[in-house]
Amino acid sequence: MSRAMNLKLPEATVRKRCTEGGVTISAIEPLPSGGTHLVCMTGTGAETMRGLLSDHLITGIVKRFPFFRA
């Protein structure tokens, strides 16, 4: 399973929820259409976040910014 997911939540909310869930973030970036692209450090962490944020997952293809650097 992928460690990456796209969420219909602002970055600050995603960071807070990851901290609350004890999940370490590998990469995080905003999406052009709104929302956040999240990559967790482990597959287990990603599964945890998918469970916690299942109502906020974006399905399908999502456009991302080219060459985004935080």
Rank of each mutant, 00 (worst) to 15 (best):
M49N: 15
G45M: 07
T48M: 15
R50N: 06
S26H: 11
G51I: 01
E29F: 10
M49F: 15
R50K: 13
P32Q: 01
R50H: 03
S33I: 12
P32M: 00
I28A: 10
A27S: 12
R50G: 07
L31G: 12
G34K: 00
T24D: 12
R50D: 07
T36C: 06
G51V: 01
P30T: 00
G35F: 10
T42Q: 03
G43M: 04
C40V: 04
A27G: 07
T44P: 03
S54E: 07
S33W: 01
P32S: 02
L38E: 06
T48D: 14
P30D: 00
L53A: 06
G51E: 11
A27Q: 13
M49T: 15
V39E: 14
L38A: 08
S54N: 07
D55V: 05
A46D: 05
I28V: 12
T44H: 14
T48S: 14
T24N: 13
T42A: 07
T42M: 02
S54W: 05
P30N: 00
P32E: 04
A46Y: 02
L52E: 15
T48P: 03
S26N: 04
A27I: 05
S26G: 05
T42E: 04
I25K: 02
D55P: 05
T36H: 05
A46L: 04
L38W: 09
I28S: 09
G34N: 04
T24C: 10
T42V: 06
S33E: 15
G35T: 06
T36V: 03
V39A: 13
L52C: 14
L53Y: 00
C40L: 03
G51M: 08
S33G: 12
S26C: 03
T42R: 02
T42N: 03
T48E: 15
S54M: 08
H37E: 10
T36F: 04
S33Q: 14
G43Q: 06
L38N: 09
A46P: 00
E29P: 07
G45E: 09
T44M: 12
T44Y: 14
E29A: 13
L31Y: 14
T48W: 01
G34C: 02
H56W: 06
T36E: 04
H56M: 07
L38S: 09
A27D: 14
H37I: 04
P30M: 01
S33C: 12
G43C: 04
A27L: 11
